[in-house]
Design a binder for these strands. Structure first.
Lengths: 210, 210
DNA sequence: TATTTTCCGTTGCAAAAGCAACACATTATG
DNA sequence: CATAATGTGTTGCTTTTGCAACGGAAAATA
């Protein structure tokens, strides 16, 4: 299956789009967008890092997704079914393109490049999200904090084609991503080190097994 | 957004398809299919109930998805990234249509109805999966068994437009779906009953709050 | 219908995870 | 540069969860 997608072309075509669009800059910790029911916003992160975050009624914070340069997000990729607040928070200074749809699968009449490119690639883009989501479910269904950590590390290791890699999160955020208590996670991480499975140098993890 | 999809038409068009296809019948507990990397199988559950199940290295079983009549599944909707076995198991007698793709987003040259219908609707179908997956992630990120149960019940309640609904799982399977220990879940369910939040009559749950 | 298998419901005990608090390091910010 | 804010690392204690085991109910099967 062809999963290539030329994001650079996509973005450059965007400037020729016939639709309303906006480019905005955000400072660290600002809220980039809040997901709203029945809106179909498509956002492109041109620069920076951001997290899709949910706060539940108990005050727990969950990092649902982590976005870096060229990531696509917005309601297009997340049909909202509950009342929980979903925010995208800038983790560094960010530049973001916004674009609102009527019907994401219909081409516009003017046949602009952007729409053409988008409608051709949207299925693949969404399918890519499906892959990410399934991966995340696999992590979350692991029964122990230890297995979640190891699972996540092995994922990053595979992605980087190396037993050494940077964590894209602070440890505090990693806990929110794995949906576990931070101090319990720290304890488990310590045990992993003591068991000789993992080493940690600054923000860098080194896997020592297999 | 238009999320309607005429599954009946889809299936009837299937018979005019130009591609290899197969219709098979399964008994309860038989394995309908195993997900295989780099294959793009599309399966349609014409009748019966089935679960997508994963067994991990610790022997834990996880029910990843639950399928009922007219559900679509197969690698098309699940890009495989790990080595865990993914099986679809029949929970009752099932009738299933199988179909293997080369490139799921390309129309065939012969312009058969099935392909036309499929390529028009595939994005929506996948987007529907995305909704399901996000919902599942929301459940799994809940920190306690109690919240998982309540979250799942409230979901079924919303779907049924009623405070009373049938569980689509046995309690044993529900535990595998929520990714918790069965006996711990039973204990929590008992507490929910004692706290007057939930009633259970046979396979039927009644929500007593709000 | 008799018998086997699966599921339900329960419990004691052990292990894991959550909570709260704190000191210290590192990073932003006025 | 001083100070505030945030992140890291740790620990004692409590609560939740998992594990193992068992008896009985319900359902499937011979």
């Amino acid at each position: 299956m062809n999963t290539n997608f030329d994001i650079e072309k996509f973005i450059s075509d965007f400037s020729n789009s016939c639709q309303k669009k906006q480019k905005k800059v955000f400072n660290k910790n600002e809220v980039i967008t809040t997901y709203i029911k029945n809106r179909n916003q498509l956002c492109i992160l041109l620069d920076g890092h951001a997290d899709l975050v949910r706060y539940d009624l108990n005050g727990n914070r969950t990092i649902v997704e982590h976005f870096s340069k060229n990531a696509l997000f917005g309601e297009v990729f997340y049909t909202i079914t509950t009342n929980n607040e979903l925010l995208v928070e800038a983790k560094s200074n960010c530049t973001v393109l916004f674009y609102i749809y009527d019907d994401i699968f219909h081409k516009c009449k003017k046949n602009c490049k952007f729409h053409q490119n988008l409608s051709e690639n949207l299925p693949q883009l969404i399918l890519h999200k499906v892959t990410d989501l399934n991966m995340r479910i696999e992590l979350l269904t692991k029964r122990s904090t230890r297995d979640k950590l190891l699972g996540y590390f092995s994922l990053l290791s595979t992605r980087n084609l190396s037993k050494t890699f940077e964590l894209p999160f602070s440890l505090t955020d990693l806990a929110d991503y794995l949906s576990v208590d931070r101090s319990a996670m720290m304890r488990e991480l310590k045990l992993l080190k003591e068991d000789g499975l993992v080493e940690k140098v600054g923000n860098r993890i080194i896997l020592l097994y297999k």
